[in-house]
Design a protein around this nucleic acid. Structure first.
Lengths: 248, 248
DNA sequence: TCGCGCGCTTGATCTGGGTCAATGAAACCC
DNA sequence: GGGTTTCATTGACCCAGATCAAGCGCGCGA
């Protein structure tokens, strides 16, 4: 249901090859022109840190292609991923001058950026951008809280199934392919990154993926290419009470 | 540091006996008058559910006194608390018509409410309210993500220490008392509620509290009255890397 | 072509926290 | 004052997932 809303509000910019949800929803031509002037692209290599936790951040932007992660790390090295940035996701917080998290590219990443000051100026003169950002932030808050349930109360198997269903769902909504029959996608994360997302060790992730494969919930081709023959079965394994929204 | 900001921006309404952070920060007299017209109070008893997950919600508001919790529950009864509402915290999401969580009063609660439609109208004509809400939502998002680290990577002992330090901090900033020497506060939650917040069982919560007491990190008078002789020691137990902001 | 490294899998063992169960101790209400 | 309810503590035992360790397979650079 969240995804439907997002899709309905998104907008393909001609110059920005991907919907930049923050600014393009309901945007007008003169606003787009003003955005042109302050827009630029940045490229990052796989493994590169886009923003260091605590660093000053002079831009906002969104992911055009590739995958990035938000992570928090304790002094002793324990790390927890707190967000996954897929194409069209927004990065940066107007009104704040730093990021409390490390933002790391897990694949090669292209970002469409706006310098922060002009973007904030534009925000204050264009009310719908502030509203859109509020909406998006509420979406992120919902996602974060749903993840708290995953982290706090689900078993390892349920955690893996939850992650797979989220990735499958996002991938499907991104590619807008008809979602009947099997879902097929590539895992954008290493086993270790999945472990950091789920609060597990990489060994447990590996074992549970093997178990889901053995039980026919998923099929694996190589280490990353996943086929989900029955999505509702996967949701069931995840302990989710709903039908998954998207498939309605 | 977050708390300092909040305090700086908050504003005591004469009629609303507590700072209503969403609307009172930087508000002007004519705005306050318009708010008067749509404001009303609601009382809830301890244990009462304020909003059921999925229910239509026709108001927004903030807690004046008492404590409420946001919780998610799976069909089999496992529950995870995803937020704690203390006095001055905001409830409701402009632009959304329902809550994805149960909101439950854990003590008697008084809320200061605004009917949603007029509030949203006011929001669209008063830009600073939208900005303030965005700021507050970003704060909540930060808190949720910090909590993801607690849930995913901390040990039971660290989890308890984290919760105690958060409550101590919020309590101190609420009561604005000089924070030198020992911190003293009452736990607003049962052991079970703490367990639901921390992704533990109530037995483990009890055991770890006993352990912290035995080790001199906290002192207990009865079951709820806590004294923290050395706050930085508590933060250390929580695995937090900082000094706690407030104490600077 | 080899070997090296990285990502991944699998096995063996250990342990933190869950589960089950008994008991304590306030508060409250006839 | 005694019974009931609710909340909390403590003990004994168990198990899911962590930890430690070995090995596999594939891509890549020399």
């Amino acid at each position: 249901m969240l995804n439907e809303e997002k899709t309905a509000l998104s907008h393909e910019c001609e110059d920005c090859p991907i919907r930049h949800r923050a600014v393009c929803a309901r945007c007008e031509t003169d606003e787009l022109e003003r955005l042109e002037e302050i827009k630029y692209y940045r490229n990052f290599e796989a493994g590169q840190t886009i923003i260091w936790s605590g660093d000053r951040m002079d831009f906002v932007g969104s992911v055009v292609s590739g995958i990035a992660t938000l992570t928090q790390t304790m002094e002793d090295g324990r790390t927890q991923m707190v967000g996954l940035l897929l194409p069209s996701d927004f990065v940066g917080r107007p009104g704040r001058d730093g990021s409390p998290y490390d933002v790391v590219a897990t694949t090669d990443v292209v970002m469409c950026c706006f310098r922060k000051r002009p973007f904030e100026d534009m925000m204050s003169t264009t009310p719908h951008i502030a509203h859109r950002l509020l909406e998006m932030t509420l979406d992120e808050l919902d996602a974060a809280r749903e993840w708290m349930l995953v982290l706090g109360r689900k078993t390892a198997r349920e955690k893996i199934a939850s992650l797979l269903s989220i990735i499958a769902r996002r991938d499907a909504s991104l590619n807008l392919r008809p979602t009947q029959g099997a879902l097929v996608f590539d895992l954008p994360l290493t086993r270790e990154a999945m472990a950091d997302y789920l609060g597990l060790t990489l060994e447990t992730v590996s074992r549970q993926i093997s178990a889901l494969k053995r039980d026919g919930v998923i099929e694996l081709e190589g280490k990353r290419h996943v086929t989900v023959p029955d999505f509702s079965r996967l949701l069931d394994e995840a302990g989710d009470d709903s039908d998954g929204g998207m498939l309605v």
